[in-house]
Design a protein around this nucleic acid. Structure first.
Lengths: 152, 152
DNA sequence: ATACCTAGTTACTAAAAGTAACCTATTATT
DNA sequence: AATAATAGGTTACTTTTAGTAACTAGGTAT
């Protein structure tokens, strides 16, 4: 479904940006792209994105509050992701010596700067989700037709 | 390392956007966020991001060209990701009945609209990668110190 | 003594990713 | 006529990662 209206002008701009990014990558040794890969991989997996978004919506969240909001995440993965996100500087963990213990998570300023980019992506996903879903059903439909034809 | 300069004004803007996104989500049943989750999960894994970026840089790529550029990806995962990305409408696969067969992949206009958002994220990652890496080493360093203290 | 609280950890299982050999169809080479 | 090469994958197998559910620490309340 090609309802998108992207001008060639925009495409040219994007191509220029990519040239800046890829231009100084030695295509004979593409491992050099790794730093970005690495940064992206840690914070752009599905759970980390949700954690950061919820910490944008609620300025402070405790472990179990996060678990309730980031629906479907397990203790194990939540605790892992939080450690990584803390380690990379996206969020800060504060422990209060109360009883029972209280632990609070909140975004750092660095985390907020990431959140801004993430929100733009999420907004895009929200406005385009119907397009994706209609594409998907159409594609699967056509796959089934093909299989039927192949059987004849 | 809190070198980021994000104004409270920007934070307020972000909070408002999040309110729009999360506001109509029933927090008692957070599964309703799923469409976005679903869309994001399919196209924001580490390999899909790289595939889309390379198809932004090179307008047309064949299977083995993609494999060379998206360094480290296996046939299996590349073929899987390409099918998913095609199914969701990000790219188009064209097969030419030559011998040996030629198969070309290129972004759709929809894929280009996604690419634009992705580039902004990647640019962010590129400018902030040093920050992440320095955070990370500092964090791991402090963890080791803590372990030493615990042993005493 | 028992149950309860938070913030996790741990042992186990299921799913996903990575590896490497193989397949199909055709042309070129020995 | 057999062998190899090529493009674009697939398949069987192994390793890594994610998910499940039970458990732990340290203290409070019943």
């Amino acid at each position: 479904m090609e309802i998108e209206t992207i001008t060639d002008n925009q495409k040219v701009k994007v191509a220029r940006k990519l040239k800046n990014m890829f231009g100084h990558i030695n295509l004979k040794d593409p491992t050099l792209i790794c730093p970005i890969r690495d940064v992206m991989a840690l914070a752009s997996d599905k759970w980390s994105i949700l954690i950061v978004l919820y910490l944008g919506y609620f300025p402070v969240l405790r472990f179990n509050e996060l678990k309730k909001n980031v629906y479907g995440i397990s203790n194990k993965v939540l605790s892992e992701r939080l450690k990584h996100l803390e380690g990379d500087g996206y969020l800060k963990r504060t422990m209060y010596a109360e009883m029972p213990v209280r632990v609070e998570y909140k975004l750092t300023n660095f985390g907020h700067s990431y959140l801004q980019k993430l929100i733009e992506l999420t907004e895009w996903a929200q406005t385009h989700k119907d397009c994706v879903i209609s594409n998907r059903t159409k594609f699967h439909g056509s796959l089934e037709n093909q299989e039927l034809e192949n059987q004849l």
